[in-house]
Design a protein around this nucleic acid. Structure first.
Lengths: 260, 260
DNA sequence: GTTCCTCTGG
DNA sequence: CCAGAGGAAC
């Protein structure tokens, strides 16, 4: 089973690239982030035409996630509140999490808030959001021991996940409080699938549009597959496919694929 | 000598189409309207790379004209005031006219105001602008008997220049006062080069983006080549090239080419 | 429908 | 550097 994560930065703008990529790189489930479209305008038919079942959870202009699955998924649910009924419903105003089950594996697809700048209001929201994600995963783990969580986490957990030209001290996506919040989640029993196969730096999944960051390879590894032990044992590879970032009008992120 | 007129509706958006068209349809001078870009951002180099000399007169967001010439032009001038020094300078706030000379032929490239709606303030501006254009041409005619004036006139002079589904009475681009203002200009000694070769209706140079007007061929002939007698006698053809309007992301206008 | 603007967001 | 919103213009 192959699962891919890709922040496409607007599915409407990137539709042709995503469909082409899927046909060249068939995966069982493609997890999209930043679809940036309300559900009624999501291009469902384009995915159906190439033999995929789309499950979508979007909003206008910002955020939005989707699961694009070769086989129908079971137990699909959108947002936090479907899993955490006691949660204040405003945590689902931003559409950032969708989950479903395939062959006994629960896929969690998430788009973690960016956080803007360390110390900002958005930064505090990011930290709060991560504590909600932790509770959400605790509930899922009660019934699903095999969880493969992926997405754009907007956090680089280690310094080697960041090109060395950036001042990391208190930089958004690398600050200690964010990293600790993510570690607290992983301590529930998740391992970084990429690190099972690769302990080197210089592997990035996102390059800022600004300052020609891709050309200069000034990237960050912020798109991850975090898997529970049973899946980590089964994992056969975890690959960053840089090719789509080289296309004309690319997303600023590129796909990461894990295989079990 | 071949001269083309083409309202490109943003040269930056249309650059690839314009360069491709030039290489497939080499002309001596390409007259562009609605370049919609300030001079410092005009893509001069793209035209130089394919062997043309660009002369530009643009502004931000609206209007803007350019002469793209195979040979260097002589006596290039931008705006009305260079020719009519007594004129109130506000007539050149909108960049709508540029002229230059090649092989003894004065090319005048113009983008006549649209006029919005009959009776509106913009309509009165259009009529006033046309009286200024008449004075401008009177001055040019003193030294240049061979004038080839082209551009987007935003006026269909005869009913056969308009698809018959439109109610013409007092419609902008067809109202009597506009037509009379244009006839007053032509009475200085200009003939419609297209009409030398074609007296049929159903020949259009512009189709509204809305209401699928191109697919239904609900067009208007509002892009013209008006030539003085010495050039009318020399004219060998005047052709509307519909092909560019069929491309993806086209301009709403298509090129018109006159050959002497 | 299409493009451009300014703004927000990343 | 890119994307979408909302507005103006054609």
């Amino acid at each position: 089973m192959k699962i891919a994560t890709w922040n496409v930065n607007s599915i409407r703008t990137r539709l042709e690239q995503v469909i082409n990529w899927l046909s060249e790189s068939p995966v069982d489930v493609l997890c999209l982030q930043e679809t940036k479209v309300v559900d009624k305008d999501f291009p469902l038919i384009s995915f159906e035409n190439v033999g995929y079942h789309p499950y979508i959870y979007g909003q206008k202009a910002y955020n939005g996630v989707a699961l694009i699955s070769r086989q129908p998924l079971e137990n699909v649910s959108m947002g936090f509140c479907a899993i955490l009924p006691e949660l204040e419903p405003q945590w689902d105003e931003q559409k950032r999490v969708i989950t479903g089950v395939i062959d006994g594996v629960r896929i969690v697809n998430t788009y973690v808030p960016n956080g803007s700048a360390v110390g900002s209001e958005k930064y505090e929201y990011k930290l709060g959001w991560l504590t909600v994600l932790r509770k959400y995963l605790q509930v899922l783990l009660l019934s699903d021991p095999a969880i493969s969580m992926c997405g754009d986490f907007n956090i680089a957990l280690e310094d080697i996940d960041i090109h060395d030209k950036v001042k990391i001290e208190d930089h958004i996506m690398a600050s200690e409080r964010e990293r600790q919040a993510l570690r607290d989640i992983l301590s529930l029993g998740f391992a970084d699938a990429f690190r099972k196969f690769n302990n080197e730096g210089g592997n990035y999944s996102w390059w800022d549009y600004r300052t020609a960051a891709f050309r200069r390879n000034l990237g960050w590894r912020i798109d991850h597959h975090y898997v529970t032990p049973v899946l980590c044992a089964r994992a056969q590879s975890c690959i960053i496919d840089v090719a789509p970032r080289k296309l004309e009008q690319p997303s600023d992120h590129t796909p990461v694929v894990v295989e079990f």
